[in-house]
Amino acid sequence: MTDLMVTLFNGLSLGSILLLIALGLAITFGLMNVINMAHGELIMIGAYVTFVMQNIFINYIPEQYFDLYFILSIPIAMVVAAAFGMLMEVSLIRYLYKRPLDSLLATWGVSLLLQQLARTIFGAPNVGVKSPSFLEGGVEVGSMYFAYPRLFILGLALVCLAGIYLYFYKTGNGRRVRAVMQNRQMAECLGVSTRKVDLITFAIGSGFAGVAGCALTLLGAIGPTIGTNYIIDAFMVVVVGGVGALFGAVAGAFGIGFFNTVFEFWTNASLGKVFIFLLIIAFLQWRPSGLVTTRSRSLD
């Protein structure tokens, strides 16, 4: 029973991390068919923003306010990552909307550049970020132990999810985004500025990568390659979940998170990866285009 609960909680925790990362991907991929390989590096940017914020607080702000740095880091990481995303969109990605595989390669190039840039600025070794004091420790229920950082990330993922839901389904901008997603030409005919929608949507997707990076600092040291550890799993979430609906990303993230934990619990970390991959391939036999798909009659 305890084992089961712990596994369940670990799965939930991993799922929430994946969800946080995959949310941004689902937005950029779902709307624009852009596979942003630099998403992991936007995560890294978020993480380093947190690191820089921490250092600023240590050096310039009285000590009793130290814990505030983390709260402040979240929006700042989001804005900085979004700014990087916008820069990428304007300078690179908008030329490649018709060529998804090419945009994948180009963004991979960007990711290499950003990684090396981080290495030049912050050095190759990992740096540590001290968790704020209110996130130290955890809550004990019987013989089980729930660490606060993991609970916090779960909560953060849910808040982000709610935010995205509200934006996409309850605001005018969100409606325009969905319109473009469903039928680009028609939306354009009806006066939606698809250029603007693309830019804003890409920035939002990138911004959530920044938030994810901020959250990852709670789990361990950060380095230039922090994003690459999670990015493939996050892509798998998008593949399994399907594009076009948030529910797919949620189900994909928690599904992969849960099964990953279970398989690793039964076997070991490396065999667990093999099983999860086989499971995904098997799942795609049943649902080739993911769990949730938008139906349309267009062929290509």
Binding site: L105, A106, G109, S111, L112, L113, Q116
Partner: peptide, 8 residues
């Protein structure tokens, strides 16, 4: 990294 971008 630059080569990827330039080539594409």
């Amino acid at each position: 990294g630059a080569l990827f971008v330039i080539v594409v």
